[in-house]
Design a protein around this nucleic acid. Sequence first.
DNA 1: TTGTACGCGTTATCAC
DNA 2: GTGATAACGCGTACAA
Lengths: 335, 335
Amino acid sequence: MTTAQRPTLEAVARRAGVSRATVSRVVNGSTTVAEPIREAVRRAVAELGYVPNLAARSLVTQRTDSIALVMPEAATRVFSDDQVFPGIIRGAAQELEAADKQLVLMLAGSPGGHERVERYTTGRHVDGVLFASLHGADPLPGRLARLGIPVVCSGRPLGDEDVPYVDVDHVGGVSRAVRHLIDGGRRRIATIAGPQDMVAGIERLTGYRETVVAAGLAEMIALGDFTRESGAAATRQILAEHPDVDAIFAASDLMAHAALRTLREAGRRVPDDVAVIGFDDIETAAYTEPPLTTVRQPIQEIGRQMTRQLLRLAAGEPIEPAVILPTELVVRESA
Amino acid sequence: MTTAQRPTLEAVARRAGVSRATVSRVVNGSTTVAEPIREAVRRAVAELGYVPNLAARSLVTQRTDSIALVMPEAATRVFSDDQVFPGIIRGAAQELEAADKQLVLMLAGSPGGHERVERYTTGRHVDGVLFASLHGADPLPGRLARLGIPVVCSGRPLGDEDVPYVDVDHVGGVSRAVRHLIDGGRRRIATIAGPQDMVAGIERLTGYRETVVAAGLAEMIALGDFTRESGAAATRQILAEHPDVDAIFAASDLMAHAALRTLREAGRRVPDDVAVIGFDDIETAAYTEPPLTTVRQPIQEIGRQMTRQLLRLAAGEPIEPAVILPTELVVRESA
DNA sequence: TTGTACGCGTTATCAC
DNA sequence: GTGATAACGCGTACAA
């Protein structure tokens, strides 16, 4: 391997005929440097192709200029096609690019992975940590927060953690969806709920129950885990238990997609016999048969907001403990 | 912010009653330490919750224990639901976890982003760089390779770059798909090609042309960019120019998906009137109407292989210049 | 087998 | 405004 010696501050200093300190000042944009010298340093930097050694810098500044994005990697969902995690990644990456910081991606799926994440983050190898929707009550965010390490979660953390988070208005969105079904004359409205160890699953079910109960209708609930497979199974269960169902609200588009197909296989027409509404508004939603009516959540914006909050936190600025983004009902043909 | 002073090697050494050097040796798994002392150090490390300072370590070792994964972020595709990039990310993350290295994700979409990637990678802030399918002939991989920085690309790099890469057998997969159509009695076989500035787009078109020509059939080509929108437009173009088309091979599942819908809108039945085959085997493929026959590529495996090659390279081991993974025709109902 | 001492490339605190 | 100089925390020859 070529050991192309990188130029150091020292080399630049020699070349520009100044001291290391001055070069450092110029590189870091200090204003207390005379313009001619500043210019000479600039030239030397360019000529030598000098790039600061981040390790050395971070050794003294105690900053790493990088933040970690931790994902649970629930085998089926994280990188399935629901685009939730890719969306968060992208939003975070955009904000970080603007701040010139690096994004370190960590999957905490395996037990070993979680241990690794813990070691790395508590070891202060990053300036802050972003947690993408967790399963259950993970104690790590709270622990990091108590260590004084900036943390922001996507989705209200379960448990009594006092960790800032960014989430969407699940209940409001679901409520709008269910009322849309009711307004359309549906009365036998079932739901395919998400996993009840995730905030998104819990809150979407809450939205369904509150709205249905308020309308004096019966609750019909089948549990899924956001995946298509679980959606298909839940749909079959609903059809078996409630043959007269005339609408289904699924807590994810993937489950709604499976419901569409399972209903068709069962001879039910959508939306004529059974109306279907999903949640997410993934790209596929516009291409299902029929196109899916769904609750849109601004996924990428979640990633951006999380990152913005984290950067503020890392800069020592105060932030609000929760940021709730709006959801929106997108009406297509399935309901 | 709490300034919880982290314990240093020095602190551990005092606690264990040995020198810093010995602690360092134990931490780094040197075998030349007597068992009793080793044990004492272990205990001190545990009691103090010592975690090595990566910045300090990398300052002296010249390694960063992190590698960069660079994605082009072609706005539409990177984080759309084709799962290619998420799949690569996941595969890479798995391999890196085993090697206890970090994954730094960089999006090179914007001009500024590309400049940033260049600055960061040439600055040797990572031990190696993974490039996910590039557009056009990006000079960066070659430049990094010449600087002696380990680089691996997904997809043969365009241009005369001599950079190691991992790719799938595009031509073989497409050839099998087209022959499947021919075997099914199709004679008017069109293709919706991918972007011709990406290797995947180029090679899949090559596979189509070679096979169609070898069978003495006419070429019917419409250009897309892997997205659904482009697939719909291309399908309309094909129907307009070749009303007698009886099969379409699309270079991506997303385009195939759009073709399915566009054909239906045009009153063509699939597969009765027109057979359709895609490429990728994304999750949605099994749920389209009708379920999509497609060429499966082992996306996650690409990420894993790239990473393995890169780690070998970084370890100074020799690697083969190209790794080609097999593709497989998955027959469902659309052809 | 263990300890001493030096250097990795920066930033920051001083004098000047 | 500029330049010495001392950390920052660690790995590793080299000596013992």
